[in-house]
Simulated scan of single mutants.
Amino acid sequence: MSLKHFIYGATSIVLFSCTPRQEINYMKDIDSIALENSIKNSRVDFQPGDQLIISVSAKDMEVVKLFNQNYSSNSNIAAQYSLPSTNNLPQSVPAGGPTYTVDTNGDIIFPQIGQISTKNENIETLRAKLTGLLKEYVKDPIVDIKLINFKVSVLGEVAKPGTYIVPDGSTTLLGALGLAGDLTAYGVRNNVLVVRNIDGQISKERIDLTSANFINSPYYYLKQNDVVYVQPNAVREKASRVDPNTGLYISVASVIASITVGILALIKN
């Protein structure tokens, strides 16, 4: 190999090896984006199937017993951050209180009050709504609401693909990717797909993680049952098309070639 070819090859290796490092940077222009613009998207509206723990307290706890029916301070709800794709044991968050499931009409049935609509409501607005209704029965009621089955799925080129239950009831796109162990070196960072199903209506958006503009997207704060998919880059796709037995074929071919050369040598002698 000539010196010229060696220098050319070394330069090419350096240039190509630097490219992935640049692509891995997230939100390179973060300083130019106003983070407060994303706060408006942080509230997660309830959907049918959501499970809510709603507990009511006041100075006189005897008065609020009616609104805490079936309360059990010993109940634990397993908040499984990672499902089958990891060997880590699930973490559990102690949680107690009566559980309400949002029905297909978006309603829950609350003791004494009756049917309450959760449509277009989130934890903050439903808490305020219930507090106002309870003031007719209780002096200075305190309402606590937890969404206990909020889950998202993260698939594709991440370290730990799977479905994740978020006990806080809310997470961002970056938070979900963090639960999944972040993107692998083969994940495409400027074309992450988020699929959303609200009342049977499917919507989707492609997110560029290398630009801070994505924090202003309505898909930055994930909603119940969102699916995040990180597609593989060209290197991974090319590797997946290679026959996994290629190495074996090459080894067998080498052995056959060696035997053939040996036989030909013996024939010549």
Rank of each mutant, 00 (worst) to 15 (best):
T101H: 08
G162L: 06
F16R: 03
L133T: 08
S153W: 01
L126S: 04
D168Y: 11
I116T: 02
D208L: 03
A79M: 01
R189A: 06
V192Q: 01
D29W: 11
V14S: 02
R43Y: 14
P141E: 09
F214R: 07
N197H: 09
Q51K: 12
V228S: 04
N70H: 13
N245P: 09
K139A: 09
N76Q: 15
P111N: 00
I123V: 14
L155Y: 00
R196A: 06
R196L: 07
N41I: 03
S2T: 06
N105P: 01
D208Q: 06
Y229F: 14
R189L: 06
I145D: 07
R189K: 06
I116C: 00
T19Y: 15
L179V: 08
S153A: 04
R241N: 15
G114R: 07
I30D: 14
N120K: 01
G175F: 01
D140R: 11
K59R: 15
V192T: 01
R196F: 12
L179C: 10
D208E: 08
L177Q: 03
P94E: 02
P161S: 12
T163N: 01
L264C: 09
N197M: 10
N233E: 10
A265G: 04
V252S: 07
N25H: 10
S92H: 01
K146F: 11
P20T: 03
T118L: 03
S72V: 13
D103R: 10
I53H: 13
I142H: 13
E205V: 02
F16T: 00
L89H: 00
I267P: 08
L15K: 01
L177N: 01
S73K: 15
I202L: 04
N120A: 01
G114M: 04
Q47G: 08
F67A: 12
P84E: 15
L147T: 05
Q115C: 05
S82A: 09
P161T: 13
